[in-house]
Amino acid sequence: MMERYDIHRSIPAILLALLVAATIFYAFVEVGFGEAKVDEEGSVSNRFISNSTQETGSSNFVTAVVVNYRGFDTLGEVTVLFLASAGMGAIVSALPAGDKRKRPIPPSLILTAGTRLVLPLIILFGSYVFVHGHLSPGGGFQGGVIIASGLLLYLVIFPEWKAPHKALALSESLAGLSFAGIGIIGLAVGGIFLDNVISGLGEAGMLVSAGLIPLIYIAIGIKVGAEMTGLVARMKGGDA
């Protein structure tokens, strides 16, 4: 009954895992997770925690750090994601089409109807997460990935569905452009790339607040959702 393990072959993997675990433990034993370190005068995190709401208008200071203080890094992250997706698309589309021997069992009516009913709700939840990035946990990356996982469900249930790669690429490019465009607006008006020029608009805690942060997060959400969907659709094969 039980699967028999072949321990000898796995010894290097186990040793490597132990080594990594020991290193991580050694490196982080001093950090003290969960302890409050905000009482230190002049520390960076202290400054972010106490000032970010007034400076950026965002109640969620993780978002304030990701999109405002470290906005340029985020642009880099989005670019890395784009490069990964594009590279994978290039590799997968160059491969010969896989064999079609293993035809999956077609889904039953209950599954298809259920997916058709649930998918809009999942996409709505993803949009909720990225629209509320500056108020509640989550943001563009999380919301985009939630949308992608909904479309992934659709792709698994309807294997013959051809992902609209052109529309995905278009929305991805437009979202990326609008992110960079918002940055350039900041450069033109405030003199700093990605400067939050209208941060005074609205009061903190409302939906319309935090200036450009929600707009940037909406762009990131659409971009990540489109990228992830395209990536998985290409991985599935078919029309890649």
Binding site: I105, S108, I110, L111, G114, L117, V118, L121
Partner: peptide, 19 residues
């Protein structure tokens, strides 16, 4: 959401098991 999706997943598992 649970009432919509939980029966769906168990249905999928049962059907896959039979097939």
């Amino acid at each position: 959401f649970l009432m919509l999706t939980n029966p769906l997943s168990s249905h999928a598992i049962a059907r896959a098991a039979y097939n």
